[in-house]
């Protein structure tokens, strides 16, 4: 049972981590809590479900198209809604509330278009699984875990080893100075939203396949776990997003498995509060020093 719970915990942690990296990426650049991230998470999953399950397209092609479509909508949200607020000196709170509005609108639009009933998301691996030492690991669990690792590596390279990543980090430190240094801040922020919402769509699709189904109630649950993971690991930190997601997933699994499901959120959030008491910036977050 211990091995099986370990596999369950890693998988659940990977789903939380995947959901959190896109959120952390945007937060890292703009210090903006993008409440629409959860909505893009389910929107991407619905896109993929329509292409893969309803239209019968290849899973990889469906996934690629769903990511591109959701990424474009994420970028459109920035260009059409957030950039005008930024350019007119609007506060982060204004932008944050705007993303909340977009998230609510997207979720309701999905209900209008697809109905509120739960939809099937077929297993691209045909239900294949491995059995060893009395534990079971399905291919879709392996895929989820591997994808989490790949996304983490790719995003780390993007942020810490590319010109775009340097521009992102420059904007996060000082957007005005970054612009004076010749960085096209609007384009970099647009690309950040494009990549961030693609990550959300990717995690939504993978989680839906892992669960075998999707519906709009995933919006509220993923948002809470995403914020909790991001805060635990350190908001804005990519490794922190993965670490936070993994800790949360493992905690929930082991509390459910060895104590009771009724206490899983109690324990998880108690640990979160404890961590924040000793490390207010989260486990891998950096303390912000305010200049006076």
């Amino acid at each position: 049972m211990l091995l099986q719970q370990l596999i369950n915990g890693i998988t659940l942690g990977a789903t939380y981590a995947l959901a959190t990296v896109g959120f952390s990426l945007v937060y890292g650049v703009l210090e903006l809590a993008n409440f629409a991230n959860g909505a893009f998470y389910i929107l991407g999953a619905y896109f993929a479900m329509v292409l893969y399950a309803s239209m019968g397209m290849n899973f990889a092609v469906s996934l690629a198209l769903a990511l591109a479509g959701t990424g474009i909508l994420g970028a459109a949200m920035d260009a059409g809604l957030l950039r005008p607020i930024r350019s007119k000196g609007g506060t982060r709170t204004s932008m944050m509330i705007s993303t909340l509005g977009v998230g609510t609108a997207i979720t309701n639009l999905i209900i209008v278009l697809f109905g509120s009933e739960t939809k099937r998301f077929p297993d691209a691996f045909g239900g294949k699984r491995l059995e060893f030492a009395s534990a079971v690991v399905t291919y879709k669990q392996l895929f989820t875990i591997l994808l989490c690792i790949v996304v983490m590596v790719v995003l780390s390279i993007l942020v810490y080893r590319t010109k775009l990543g340097r521009a992102m980090r420059a904007i996060s430190q000082n957007p005005v100075a970054a612009r004076l240094m010749g960085i096209d801040t609007n384009t970099v922020i647009l690309l950040t939203f494009f990549i961030g919402t693609m990550c959300a769509a990717l995690s939504g699709t993978v989680v839906s396949m892992y669960l075998g189904s999707l519906d709009t109630t995933m919006y509220s649950s993923v948002n809470i776990k995403m914020f909790a993971s991001a805060i635990l690991g350190g908001v804005g930190s990519l490794p922190g997003a993965v670490l936070g997601g993994m800790i949360l997933g493992m905690l929930e699994t082991f509390v459910s498995g060895y104590i009771s499901t009724a206490y899983k959120d109690v324990f998880s959030f108690a640990i979160l509060i404890l961590v924040l008491l000793f490390r207010p910036a989260g486990l891998l977050g950096q303390r912000t020093i305010k200049k006076v």
Partner: peptide
């Protein structure tokens, strides 16, 4: 065991 309406992961309790 109880669960919330939007709970999606039952793997831990199912293992038990």
């Amino acid at each position: 065991e109880s669960f919330l309406a939007d709970q999606k992961d039952f793997s831990a309790v199912m293992t038990k």
